[in-house]
Write a protein that binds this DNA or RNA. Structure first.
Lengths: 179, 179
DNA sequence: TTAACTGTACCGTCTGGACGGTAAAGACTG
DNA sequence: CAGTCTTTACCGTCCAGACGGTACAGTTAA
């Protein structure tokens, strides 16, 4: 029996890690291979070219987002509140994957924009179905995106106490908008 | 009298244009020089290395943001409403410069994060002074950032009618939050 | 045996940057 | 005011290194 291709997942994780912490430019083939503890030849065995890494990262993002969507719609406190509450960057697999996707959009990687657009649309519809009001849904989506924007720029405070305060303020806003 | 360095401004504009439309990776020295209609040597006369281009773009961003801040605080309808209303990407010099700064943050350019953090802080304080409530101020800032996030990912609709609708929804939310 | 690698040696292209040259506008000097 | 010097504002070329990608021979574990 062949060994399990565990290197493939390590490579993808290494790619995500490098994109998130060092920027897309730093995620070169050599860097990804080194980060994963895999030879360059091994990398190119699993991902015959760089685009394959990008595609895999985007596919994983859509996969995780789809899982998250069913979690949102099933939440007892409603999709809107659940969406906001989990929009604060917490380094979950989805957070990481989404952060990677956002950066790939900025790097003008083919397909990245479409992936993010689909994910956004699904979330918007889930929130809208929850609150019923397009005004509130638009506000919730903008706030969620704003949190990601701040997180992806490293503008959010480090301490979870301060992050919690920001989150509570946004949830309080939602409470006033959709009591 | 020395000739006016009009090439310098053309080069900075070319750099911004390339970062915004093609991504930071595409804004190479050759590309910037070609876009500005200047030789590579000419570029390196004004900006001795690539970092100088980045620094100049960030300095311009802080400059424009400072101008905008006084505009916000002087607005008759209040800083919060004025902030939201001008957060929809309209390709103003500030919008462009800020978009460039955001992308430079994602590209992990030194100093970019600090520039954006300063600008955000100033805006937050201006909005807070207007509305008086940290809950509302945090919500307004998140919504503004969300708009920029969406714009920088090309997720906002093309037509100004649809953009206006989004903006009106956010302004309506603000009306409900701070009547 | 075979899939899953490692390791090395390349290749063509692109990139940031170094460098030497040049044209013209002032400034200085006689 | 003519001749020379200096500074400014560029141009064009060259280069070392990095990058994506290829090729292929060897190694390891199920």
């Amino acid at each position: 029996m062949p060994r399990k291709p565990e290197a493939r997942q390590k490579l993808l994780a290494a790619f995500e890690h490098l994109v998130l912490t060092e920027g897309e430019r730093a995620a070169t083939l050599d860097a990804v291979a080194a980060q994963a503890g895999v030879s360059k030849g091994g990398l190119l065995y699993h991902f015959p070219h760089r685009q394959a890494l990008v595609d895999a990262a985007l596919a994983r993002c859509e996969e995780l987002a789809a899982e998250d969507l069913s979690r949102l719609t099933a939440s007892p406190r409603g999709a809107a509140r659940e969406f906001l509450a989990t929009s604060v960057y917490e380094d979950s697999p989805l957070d990481r994957s989404l952060g990677v996707a956002f950066r790939l959009v900025q790097a003008r990687e083919p397909g990245a924009r479409e992936t993010c657009a689909r994910v956004e649309r699904h979330w918007y519809h889930a929130v809208l179905e929850d609150v019923g009001d397009p005004v509130v849904a638009t506000a919730v989506q903008a706030m969620g995106d704003g949190l990601y924007q701040q997180a992806s720029m490293g503008l959010l405070p480090e301490s979870s106490a301060e992050k919690r305060q920001i989150l509570e303020r946004l949830l309080e806003s939602l409470e006033r908008l959709a009591p």
